[in-house]
């Protein structure tokens, strides 16, 4: 049903497939609203959640999606340091494959690791974030949330605010939104925006007020405290003053825009509590849509073919 066997990233991913995933996510949203939130779609399928990096939220979201679809799941937390000690990435991959599984959901700190995995195993690979490269399921759940809110994506104006250079969420959102016909503007400190960002077909604006004025929705990224006080950013206070999404800043604009955040939130840094908890924020919808979108992706990649072959 989807054209590609794996979901590695949204760069070059077909628009019709993104739309199919979003539409399917909406049908699973209904399932999640039922008293018994479980369907037998992936009964008998085994999925390994292979996490080389801690990410409680993403792992729980995937795990829940798998359980709601009645798949068998195994969690495998590996550390890349064990790889450095001798066991190669290939060994780890082949060991897992030997256990006769159907799909691997992988989080890895290195860009390209999921593609690399597909070269060593036959199972379906779903990228749950590869370093500073892509995080396609996050972008799909973001787009599902935008679609739910606005009813369309084409022509939508989305500002992505924060540390773009180190963000897989930004890169996947850029590719996905561009493919779906939305307009994207990146905003953040110039040291945290890749020098070649505009080559990806987006605009760059360092003035957050202008971006707020322009945008229909903002995707506010987490600013990691490790970046502060080094060579890239002078201080939390400076970041907050220049880019923080505060109630005061938003109140200067007449139009009420939608606020998203992939979590976890640094309250008082990139976003104020009052904004994060306000009606214009759809942060908790994103969490719920995360489960629904991941159900849709798993269903379409692992089980959709046999059951809905003609639709």
């Amino acid at each position: 049903m989807l054209q590609q066997k794996h979901l590695l990233g949204l760069e070059g991913y077909p628009a019709e497939d993104i739309q199919t995933i979003i539409d399917t996510a909406f049908t699973f949203r209904e399932v999640l609203d039922r008293p018994i939130k479980k369907v037998p779609s992936l009964q008998g399928k085994t999925i390994v959640n292979l996490f080389f990096e801690n990410s409680t939220r993403t792992r729980i979201s995937f795990e829940l999606a798998q359980k709601r679809l009645s798949a068998d799941t195994v969690n495998f937390s590996a550390s890349t340091s064990s790889l450095k000690k001798g066991e190669t990435f290939k060994d780890t991959a082949q060991n897992i494959e030997a256990m006769k599984i159907d799909a691997v959901v992988m989080r890895h700190p290195t860009p390209g690791a999921p593609l690399h995995l597909t070269q060593h195993i036959n199972s379906i690979v779903i990228n749950a974030g590869d370093g500073t490269h892509e995080h396609p399921t996050q972008a799909i759940l973001d787009m599902t949330s935008l679609h739910e809110k606005f009813g369309y994506l084409k022509g939508l104006k989305v500002g992505i605010i924060g540390d773009i250079s180190h963000s897989r969420v930004a890169l996947s959102n850029i590719h996905g939104l561009k493919t779906m016909g939305a307009e994207v503007t990146l905003c953040g400190p110039s040291t945290l925006i890749p020098p070649f960002a505009e080559d990806l077909g987006v605009s760059v604006n360092y003035n957050v007020d202008e971006v707020i004025e322009w945008a229909d929705a903002l995707n506010v990224l987490r600013i990691q405290r490790e970046r502060m006080g080094g060579g890239l950013l002078p201080s939390v206070r400076e970041y907050r003053n220049l880019f923080g999404i505060s109630t005061e800043r938003l109140s200067n604009h007449k139009k009420e825009i939608v606020i998203m955040h992939p979590g976890p939130i640094n309250r008082g840094v990139e976003i104020d509590s009052s904004v994060a908890d306000s009606d214009q924020a759809i942060i908790l919808d994103q969490v719920l849509n995360g489960v629904a979108s991941r159900m849709a992706i798993l269903y379409l990649l692992l089980g959709g073919k046999q059951e809905e072959g003609n639709s």
Partner: peptide, 15 residues
């Protein structure tokens, strides 16, 4: 090399 491709790949790069 730092350029469009490194940006797409999400790899740390140098100009």
């Amino acid at each position: 090399h730092e350029g469009k491709i490194s940006t797409q790949l999400g790899l740390p790069a140098s100009p």
